[in-house]
């Protein structure tokens, strides 16, 4: 199981949970599992999210490996100037 932290405004769409636990070994599985467990999150996941793995921000890397020992934080998709 992997614990992933949702940012505040997503929690209402995930039964108020701040941390969600899902079965996943990489980002793709994590996002799929999140959308399945909490369908309210699906539109945001479809629009795009970033994921921070132990402090490093990833934008779209599905096959990045994750495990229970990692800190995984869901973040909005990044744009820049």
């Amino acid at each position: 199981m992997v614990r992933v932290k949702l940012w505040g405004s997503l929690r209402a769409l995930a039964d108020g949970e701040e941390w969600v636990e899902v079965e996943a070994s990489n980002f793709k599985e994590l996002l799929d599992a999140l959308a399945e467990k909490h369908p309210g999150l699906a539109p945001q996941i479809k629009r795009g999210v970033s994921l921070a793995l132990d402090g490093v921000i990833y934008r779209e890397a599905w096959f990045t490996k994750i495990g229970p020992e990692n800190e995984v934080i869901l973040m909005p998709y990044m744009v820049g100037g």
Partner: peptide, 9 residues
Amino acid sequence: LSSYGPTFN
């Protein structure tokens, strides 16, 4: 622990 979620390295 950063204000936006992740822990800084």
